[in-house]
């Protein structure tokens, strides 16, 4: 297990080194080449969002900056992760190169206002599709289906099996998150500690201040991978969290365009490549079967 993880890290380092050794001008092209080729001559019907963005040659994308594997800003200031790759795929189809994407950090609380105010063109930020959100914005996708799971100390000393264990353990999650809501709604007598960030929950678990951390499995696998074997995943996902690309309400053409782009990426394998290069690399997992796009 650990050996394969080191191997993955070495492979990732190899990719980075290969990028460094090439000419500076080729570097960005190489990075884009990992996922998808930028379209050269793009043409869209006048007046559509696609035409406007292609004309401008730039797109503003909201993503998370603190989510390993999905959207994480490294020392170089550039975000990387599966969400970031999804945005690059969409941008490439608009003829926009990765370096022309303007990244804006979105956190859970500001994603809808950013879309409503037009501060971002789209949001790709581990953004669960749900009906309440659909009332004020629209979602393309889903492009990934996560599920809520539980992380415990290595060896699972309390024998946590799944959500039915919540009443008997001290659980940590993030204030204002949907996983916290799930526990509060379905297990009102659970002892829930709500911090501001998942890294704080991990610290509390390490100190024994809580017995378990619960949120989407993709976030937990990132924490497990960073924990030096201190944590493990229960591995019994009990909700469905379809991640979608948020766009302003009512822009059906843009939504259809993103859905088409995602389906193409599923077929051409760029979707799976994006997984292998990001979330798959840190969690050491194969690309799953892509979820069916929901054209509501």
């Amino acid at each position: 297990m650990r050996i394969t993880r080191y191997a993955a890290a070495l492979a990732a380092a190899g990719v980075v080194l290969a990028g460094c050794s090439s000419e500076a001008g080729d570097q960005a092209e190489d990075a884009a080449g990992n996922t998808v080729d930028v379209q050269e001559d793009v043409e869209f019907e006048a007046g559509t969002t696609m035409a406007e963005l292609a004309e401008a040659g730039t797109i503003t994308v909201g993503t998370k900056f603190d989510q390993p594997g999905f959207g994480l800003v490294g020392p170089d200031g550039e975000p990387e992760g599966f969400d970031v790759e999804m945005a690059k795929i969409v941008a490439a189809e608009l003829g926009i190169a990765p370096e022309d994407i303007e990244w804006v950090e979105t956190v859970s609380a500001n994603r809808e206002p950013f879309l409503q105010n037009g501060q971002v063109d789209m949001v790709v930020a581990t953004y669960t599709i749900n009906d309440a959100r659909k009332e004020i914005i629209d979602f393309a996708g889903p492009y990934y289906e996560a599920g809520q799971d539980i992380m415990v100390a290595a060896g699972n000393p309390l024998g946590v099996t799944g959500p039915e264990s919540f009443p008997d353990i001290r659980t940590c999650s993030v204030n204002g998150s949907t996983p916290a809501q799930y526990v509060q709604t379905n297990y009102p007598d659970a002892q829930l500690t709500l911090f501001g960030e998942y890294s704080q929950c991990a610290e509390a678990l390490r100190n024994g201040q809580v017995d378990a951390v619960t949120t989407d499995n993709v976030i937990l696998t990132g924490l497990v991978a960073q924990s030096d074997g201190d944590f493990e995943l229960v591995g019994n996902a009990f909700t469905e969290e379809p991640y979608g690309i948020g766009i302003p309400k009512g822009d059906d053409e843009f939504r259809a365009f993103i859905n088409d782009t995602l389906e193409e990426a599923y077929e051409s394998g760029t979707w799976a490549d994006a997984w292998d290069a990001t979330a798959g690399a840190i969690t050491d997992t194969e690309a799953p079967e892509p979820p069916a796009v929901d054209r509501y």
Binding site: S108, A109, N110, E112, P113, Q116, A132, R133, E135, I136, I137, N175, G176, S177, T178, A180, Q181, T193, L194, F195, G196, E197, Q200
Partner: peptide
């Protein structure tokens, strides 16, 4: 409340916004 698990005034903001998207202001 914002980050250290105390259910004070600031604490409830994020969860109320989650349950009422678009009501942040």
């Amino acid at each position: 409340g914002g980050g250290f698990a105390v259910a004070d005034i600031a604490f409830y903001g994020p969860s109320i916004i989650r349950d009422n998207p678009g009501s942040a202001l």
